[in-house]
């Protein structure tokens, strides 16, 4: 028990943990300060720790606990870090960043230019090549036949009666004409005999 601690003017604001023991702030200060940076009001708190076994035990236990926490966390992080890939340096980094890499722009422009040029070149070659004679004659013959076909169509259309509907020729007329022809031919042969 240290009466000085209870007599601190702002002791009530510091919420003492237990009667006559270190306040929350004093405890925190003792825990958070290392050996190389002594606490501001360390003399008072440290004096209490030396005389109070309970606070001393708790302080020691917490310090050890925080030390183990640090060691375990560090060991765990180091172990995880070994699995982690190395940080890639910007100078060696090969990232596809067209905005910042002018080389990519040049490559992309060249690819687009080539892609556009190739079909144009093919078209130009087709246009410049002389048309074959066979092809020309074929095309003129086709045009003539087309014209003839058109004339036939025009003729049929201009006809008063369509060809399929025209009256058929009398077959007897054909027979009489044939017999007449025969008679004529017979007369001719008779005359030759005479």
């Amino acid at each position: 028990m240290t009466p000085e601690l209870r007599l601190q003017p702002d002791n009530t604001a510091r919420r003492p943990i237990g009667e006559g023991h270190l306040t929350e702030e004093q405890f925190g200060e003792l825990l958070s300060t290392s050996a190389r940076e002594p606490a501001a009001n360390g003399s008072l708190a440290e004096a209490h720790v030396q005389s109070c076994e309970q606070c001393a035990a708790e302080l020691t236990s917490l310090r050890e606990c925080l030390l183990v926490f640090r060691e375990a966390s560090t060991a765990y992080a180091d172990n995880e870090l070994r699995r982690m890939p190395q940080v890639t340096l910007p100078a060696r980094r090969r990232r596809f960043l067209p905005v910042v890499e002018p080389g990519y722009w040049v490559l992309a422009a060249a690819a687009i230019f080539l892609a556009a040029l190739l079909p144009m070149q093919v078209l130009r070659q087709h246009a410049a090549r002389p048309a074959p004679a066979v092809a020309a004659s074929t095309s003129s013959a086709t045009a003539e036949s087309d014209e003839a076909l058109l004339e036939d169509v025009n003729r049929e259309e201009s006809a008063s009666v369509p060809a399929p509907m025209q009256t058929l020729a009398d077959p007897t007329d054909t027979v009489s004409s044939t017999s007449a022809d025969i008679d004529t031919s017979n007369q001719t042969s008779d005359q030759r005999k005479d």
Binding site: E24, E25, F27, G28, E29, L31, S32, E58, L62, L66
Partner: peptide, 8 residues
Amino acid sequence: YRALNVIR
């Protein structure tokens, strides 16, 4: 100190 109090 508040954090330490929680831990404590």
